[in-house]
Computed example of a mutant assay.
Amino acid sequence: MTVQLTAFLMMDGKAKQAIEFYKEALDASVLFSQTYGDAPENPESPLPANRRDLVAHAVLKIGMATVMVADRLPGRPHRSGNQVQICMTTDEKEKAIRYYEALKQEGQVEMPLQQTHFSPGVAIVADKFGIVFQIVTMTSEEAAIRGHQKDR
């Protein structure tokens, strides 16, 4: 696996309800789910108590497709057009850097390329057409299937 594109549905506090709905309506199965409270605490940016139970990342299997679902990051406003994003995963950090640099030209960086607790390189950028891409580096096939690194 060098590059994989996956639809990423960004919810405004209703990801758990959406997941339950898709399980019933589309026979979706939950491959992975994690709340914001499950992630390591960042002392520089403490998580408000009312965000801890919101979904930070979930992976659903619907037929042959994988769909990711999450509640919007704390402090990220909801705006028309960013509910569905493209999550681009690669196992090559150099490719993540190249895609990031290309997509940000005439676009808007929402989160600069950086290391996180779940990946050695993550960025969120809206390209010049307003399409939002989440660029994520995964270092194993298992992580790519889950949509995040298991241990960091």
Rank of each mutant, 00 (worst) to 15 (best):
A18F: 03
V125L: 01
V3P: 07
F129K: 03
A70H: 03
F21R: 08
L47G: 07
T2I: 13
V59I: 12
N42E: 04
Y100S: 00
A56G: 08
G75C: 13
D127L: 06
P112M: 03
I97H: 00
D71V: 08
A56T: 05
V122G: 00
N42G: 03
E44K: 05
E41F: 07
D127S: 01
T66I: 13
R52V: 06
L9K: 07
H78F: 14
A102V: 00
V30P: 14
S29A: 11
A70F: 12
M11T: 06
V122P: 09
M111W: 10
E24M: 03
S45P: 00
A70E: 04
A28V: 03
T66R: 13
T2E: 15
A18L: 05
I124L: 13
P120C: 01
T89Y: 06
K14I: 05
V59D: 07
L5S: 12
I131Y: 00
Q115S: 08
E110Y: 09
F32K: 14
G121S: 04
V122Y: 05
Q85I: 00
P112L: 02
K95F: 05
L47W: 09
Y22E: 02
A58W: 04
G75Y: 11
P120E: 03
N50L: 09
F129M: 07
T116P: 00
A25F: 02
V109H: 03
M11S: 09
A58K: 02
L73S: 12
K23A: 13
I97V: 07
I131A: 01
E106I: 14
N82K: 08
G75A: 11
P46F: 00
F21L: 10
